[in-house]
Design a protein around this nucleic acid. Structure first.
Lengths: 215, 215
DNA sequence: TCGTTTCCTGACCGTATGGTCAATACGAAG
DNA sequence: CTTCGTATTGACCATACGGTCAGGAAACGA
């Protein structure tokens, strides 16, 4: 890869770079618009404006609105699944679930739009990612459930239903993204500060870890 | 009120009854459609079909789509606030929060559509109920927070941040409505049975009550 | 029975939106 | 410079949707 390629990548770079660059531009704008307006309320024109591209250009990269939406949802799902690693290499619930809560709270903060798109998709009956739910998510869930069950058997935590513990973890952490607007309104209209995010994370962690008898 | 009025109310009753009856028919259909398709994805035609009325008839009772939507959201908000009573007349966290969890889980089960509409509304930045958030909800929240704080001061529970405890309560209970489809998918595609709802409620209650040191 | 109010509804309209396309510009390779 | 595949874009189209309206049907009181 010659020097020139790296330098010119930023603006009007190589072919491949242009594609990647524009797709990212569009996906970022789409994520935001889908989150704020929903699939039905979002318009290709608005996404185009937000990405700084003509509408026809969007259809060049993403043939249909649904294609674009699908990509956005898939992106989120992957980020979401990556937080699993926190769970895996942990000796017990304090480290494992603690790290998982932290990872998911971090995602809620860094990808609030994505979280909302995901929530809306599920609320509408998962029209485009039903297969993911039935395959990947189901496997993931069963894997973690057995980890939790092992911890219970080893006496490292109280005997709570692993399934409902997982739901509780998802619900509480994602709430800070999905209901971020409500939280902000109840915070005198101000977004949470770094400190407040830390307090939120600690509160959630503390209640849950004590709740499962792991402290 | 003469006998005839009571009898004929069911079909083609009195004037006033017709209005009430049709408004309810429309509101129920609207709640469902808005929940499943979002505001933008919902169509007046679909709501009309689901209510078994011609589209023009909807506009007779509700001038615009937004008027109809607003009514749906307000309905939910009221149901949602009513669960507050569980909180009020309680001696301590075990009774108060326990009853609140039960009430909210019950709402999640009985009004899943309403819960989804509410969630979507908040996710989109609360375009039509922002004033409710800033007035009613804020007052409600502060009231309950001071109740929780009193319990803490009286040594009836551990010193957790009341605000984040409330968020955790909302998040976990509403999750069973908003993410009901995901839960159903992870439950072998079957809706939760009576027994499973009871188990879910108990799991949530147990984790939270132990988590706040009230058990 | 008659008059008045409420309710009902098919037909219609303007607009916004997703998507298409043909013409053009552009970058790279030879 | 020429060629060729990729990227760009304004103009355009068909459709679906929210909303209107006029004419008529019920329902009710007198």
């Amino acid at each position: 890869m010659p020097e020139t390629a790296r330098i010119s990548r930023i603006r009007s770079g190589r072919r491949t770079d242009i594609r990647q660059q524009n797709e990212r531009l569009i996906l970022d704008a789409a994520e935001r618009v889908f989150a704020e307006a929903g699939f039905g309320g979002a318009t290709m024109q608005l996404i185009a404006d937000m990405a700084g591209l003509p509408k026809a250009n969007l259809h060049y990269y993403f043939p249909t609105k649904e294609d674009l939406y699908r990509r956005v949802v898939q992106n989120i799902f992957e980020i979401w699944l990556d937080a699993a690693s926190s769970f895996d290499d942990a000796a017990g619930p304090v480290e494992g679930i603690g790290a998982y809560v932290e990872a998911k709270m971090d995602i809620s903060r860094r990808h609030p739009h994505g979280s909302k798109v995901w929530a809306a998709e599920v609320m509408h009956g998962a029209p485009v990612i039903q297969d993911y739910l039935e395959t990947t998510l189901r496997q993931w869930t069963e894997g973690r459930m057995s980890v939790i069950q092992r911890w219970i058997d080893e006496g490292k935590m109280a005997p709570v239903d692993p399934r409902h513990l997982l739901y509780l973890l998802w619900a509480t952490t994602q709430h800070y993204a999905d209901f971020g607007h409500q939280i902000e309104t109840l915070n005198a209209g101000q977004p949470l500060t770094d400190r407040q995010w830390r307090e939120a994370t600690e509160s959630v962690k503390q209640i849950i870890l004590r709740g499962i008898g792991a402290l």
